[in-house]
């Protein structure tokens, strides 16, 4: 997994609540057996005016000029600014895979759906919850200033605006440690292999019907 420590990135605003994972990456792209290559199909139905299918060359497809990802000023954005309940619906990890593959490293919203939120951390993408009024003000500043950037400092747990306003955010110590060091969970968990085995043996003795 990619490390995440300090990010100074261009911000792209997606001003809709309840953006679901079907919208983030439509089902036809879930047929892939790979983890990568989903970026060109991120928000496929909003981003293109034709119907997308796997295998199409997206550079040749007609784009919806009104959709934010297609606007010149947001090209190269690494921070997605979103509204409430971002990532609701299906548990598909293809959603954070598409977001990461497109080039986003962080998402800021007032709230996220639980499974999506969790999936982000497994892929080096940092989802940040900020209060609704803060997110509102970021949307306004982003609309007003072309080239609007934010600085995210994971170690300090802050999001800083160009004016120097710093907003703190919460993250569990475990997730922070994994992101800062680019660590996957499996290796960490297997350090507890003996504990898992002992737990399992006890369970087998007490509830043999589960095994």
């Amino acid at each position: 997994m990619k490390k995440f420590d300090l990010l100074d990135g261009l911000v792209c605003p997606l001003d809709r609540a309840n953006v679901d994972t079907d919208a983030i990456i439509p089902k036809q792209f879930l047929k892939s057996i790979n983890r990568s290559g989903f970026g060109p199909n991120l928000f496929d139905e909003w981003r293109y005016t034709d119907h997308g299918e796997p295998g199409m060359d997206c550079s040749l497809r007609p784009k919806n000029p009104d959709f934010v990802l297609n606007q010149p000023r947001f090209q190269g954005a690494q921070i997605l600014l979103a509204r409430d309940n971002f990532g609701c619906g299906s548990s598909r990890e293809h959603a954070p895979w598409a977001i990461e593959d497109y080039g986003f490293r962080a998402i800021i919203a007032p709230s996220f759906a639980d499974i999506f939120f969790n999936n982000c951390f497994k892929n080096g993408v940092l989802p940040i919850v900020l209060p609704e009024e803060t997110v509102d003000s970021l949307f306004k500043e982003c609309a007003a200033q072309e080239g609007y950037r934010l600085t995210i400092d994971l170690a300090a747990q802050t999001v800083t605006t160009p004016d120097g306003d710093a907003f703190p955010f919460e993250i569990t110590a475990h997730r922070k440690h994994c992101l800062l060091n680019g660590l996957d969970d499996i290796g960490l968990t297997l350090r507890h292999a003996e504990k898992i085995k002992a737990f399992e043996e006890k369970r087998k003795a007490e509830q043999p019907w589960l095994f």
Partner: peptide
């Protein structure tokens, strides 16, 4: 509850979930 694919791999490998 539902999990993502990284967690599917984690459960396959460790029989646990973080």
């Amino acid at each position: 509850h539902g999990i993502g694919t990284s967690e599917v791999e984690h459960v396959l490998a460790t029989q646990t979930l973080v």
